[in-house]
Amino acid sequence: MSLASLPLPRRRTWHWSLIVPPVLLLALATGAALGETPIPLGVVLQVIANKLLGAGFPVDRIDEGIIWNYRLARAIVAACCGAGLALSGLVLQALLRNALADPYLLGISAGASSGAVAVTVLGLGGGAISLSLGAFGGALLAFVFVALLAHAAGGDGNIGSGTQIAGVIILAGIAGSQLFNALTAFMIAKSANADQARGIMFWIMGNLSGVRWPDVALVVPAALLGTLACLFNTRALDAFTFGSDSAAALGIAVRRVQFGLIGIAALMTAVIVSIVGSIGFVGLVIPHAMRILVGTRHGRLVPASALGGAVFLIAADVISRTLVPGQVLPIGVVTALIGAPVFALILIGGRTGR
């Protein structure tokens, strides 16, 4: 098959419009129903109907408060974060042609951690800046640092081929991660007391406990923007599978697509990290798992990865709330405990399949 015969996204993606909504709604309802105190799925649906449609079903007020004020908002944020991280990993793996690329490759997680620590430990902003806002600012600062470093390494932007661009971005991201991780460790060691250090470490490992509806209003637009951008560029992502030179031969604006989609991935990750902290393995494992299930064409892979990431993180959140009775685990611990063995199986399966 020639490169010019690559299918347009809409040829094989129409069925996802029928698959994604019911599966996602079922996952959200299940995430709102499960917890230390399970609530029947029918009650969850009645609460949603009462709040959105004014249905007037008789529902216990305690159950209604748990579902609407706590679990449903948490499930929506988990779904958006999972979808955003999975799509960010998918984009970076395609554009950088690196199977180990994930959303934190660009130093965004490290920068967000530094911003959160600066607000919490150093009192940056004099109490006017929240932890999430500080983390978002740190994430953007880290991305700007990495982008400027990559640009400077290219010598006025003349980095060379697409492969060289990818290599420079990866190296700049590693340098940025190390720098901001060092800043975080320095601030904690110098200024944090025991309680602050414990709280920061819990947040760094990923934490959905504090999310509420205002966080939904922030993360949903970011996830939708990233999903639409990826769907719009599925043909370009397919072309990058054969290399940047082949993509350029097909008329793809290589640098514009690379920096545009990487920038969107960075923005999504910055928003996610600023709300829930660092959650590993989602952006690394989900794209690889979806390639096994639906193939390598991004017309199918983009919606599959978004859905897979959303369902996976909802399930991980439920496990984090129920695995240890009376205690909520950092969600990053759960994703690592699940993601590391799964990724190992994918690696072994890929090796034996060759």
Rank of each mutant, 00 (worst) to 15 (best):
P214A: 04
A172I: 06
S161R: 10
G167C: 06
G138E: 05
Q178V: 08
D195C: 02
P221A: 01
F240D: 02
S130V: 03
L133P: 00
S209E: 13
L208Q: 10
R235N: 05
V211D: 00
G160R: 11
L231M: 10
A150C: 13
F232N: 07
M205K: 10
S161K: 05
A194C: 05
G137M: 07
A150G: 06
A189V: 14
S209H: 09
T227F: 15
A185F: 12
G226N: 14
N207S: 15
A166W: 12
A147E: 09
S132A: 13
A239L: 09
F186L: 12
V216Q: 01
I165M: 13
L133Y: 01
W213I: 08
G134A: 11
Q164H: 13
S191Y: 13
T227E: 01
A189W: 09
L171I: 13
L228F: 11
I174G: 11
T184S: 10
S191R: 03
G206A: 12
L148C: 11
R212Q: 09
W213A: 13
R235M: 07
N158T: 12
A223L: 00
I169C: 05
F145S: 02
L224Q: 01
G134F: 09
D195H: 06
L218M: 10
A223N: 04
Q164L: 14
L208T: 13
L208W: 14
A197T: 14
L237Q: 04
A194W: 14
A172T: 03
R235K: 14
A150N: 12
Q196A: 08
G155Q: 13
